[in-house]
Nucleic acid binder design. Structure first.
Lengths: 161, 161
DNA sequence: AGCAATCGTAACTATTATTGTTACAATTAG
DNA sequence: CTAATTGTAACAATAATAGTTACGATTGCT
């Protein structure tokens, strides 16, 4: 369960589910689609529509979480280390959300402790909003990269007809 | 269901579930706890631990969504217009998230349309991530301000013992 | 050994939202 | 009329994101 301390850490940052997440999903789908070769950050950037450095930063995070393998040098690039059915969207979400203690909801940090409401609101919100966050993460954990890939293949076939 | 167009709007902003939300919940709890009188932005700010203008901005949003009534002038201030059992956290969440088309997840906007993955990833992500967002919002909609208030009262009693 | 490709990462910029703050006109009760 | 209060504009400080340039480190190939 989430702890109050997780929320009240000094200098805590606001959540933002950045497009790093969607780019990471895109990248893993590419690695599957072209799995016979390592893909370079330049190739991936071309498909995603961004800069290779942006991709390399995301590759670093995925590598740190052992979802992919990346090699420098000539013939370098990235490849999957797992089957897509063993990678949930939650795995990816956590991999690219590098800030520790990331909370979906911000809770104001200085309610008045002597107030009938202010003295208790943080603890109550940690429970209720923590539960909502858990349900959101459970939903992410229920979708796998293999599902995403299946959907992409369905769209490919639809387009061809 | 979410539409692709909701995501691809030019200049779309990143999500951030700001502390406006937790401050709004705190405010509504205060209005209930002291419902025999109108509460001024200064009083609420004292309990929340912020500036009265920050509170007035949030009061404006809650008022625009008909959750409260606010009056200017001497003896002015805010009061509830509904029973707490008729206000869900989702109602509040939507009230203070003023940006239209706010999406929990950002999706990168320029995947290469001719790529086997890039040409389909947006549509697939809109479906999958839209579903996750819906489940998160359903969780918010399952908690009511009356639940929050009950929990606050439980904590008040615990503290007294 | 040397070359070319590629990653890893630092540094910087531009953009944007949030939060807090000051200021002041408009509103309203008494 | 006066005092209290809201509504809102304007501005500053802070911080995250995304993009970009640059360059050292790594690696495969000849």
């Amino acid at each position: 369960m989430l702890q109050l301390g997780d929320y009240l850490r000094e200098g805590r940052l606001e959540l933002s589910i950045s497009s790093r997440f969607s780019v990471a999903v895109h990248t893993l789908a590419l690695l599957e689609e072209f799995k016979e070769q390592r893909l370079t950050s330049e190739f991936i950037a071309g498909s995603v529509g961004t800069n290779p450095v942006v991709i390399r930063r995301i590759l670093s995070m995925l590598k740190a979480n052992k979802l992919i393998d990346v090699q420098a040098g000539a013939a370098g690039g990235a490849k999957l280390t797992k089957a897509l059915k063993d990678i949930s969207l939650l795995d990816i979400y956590k991999a690219v959300s590098v800030i520790k203690g990331d909370n979906l909801f911000s809770i104001h940090e200085k309610p008045h402790p002597d107030c009938a409401v202010g003295g208790h609101i943080q603890g109550v919100l940690v429970q209720s909003l923590g539960s909502v966050q858990q349900q959101m993460e459970a939903a992410l954990d229920a979708t796998y990269m293999s599902d995403i890939m299946n959907n992409i293949h369905i769209q490919q076939k639809l387009k061809r007809q």
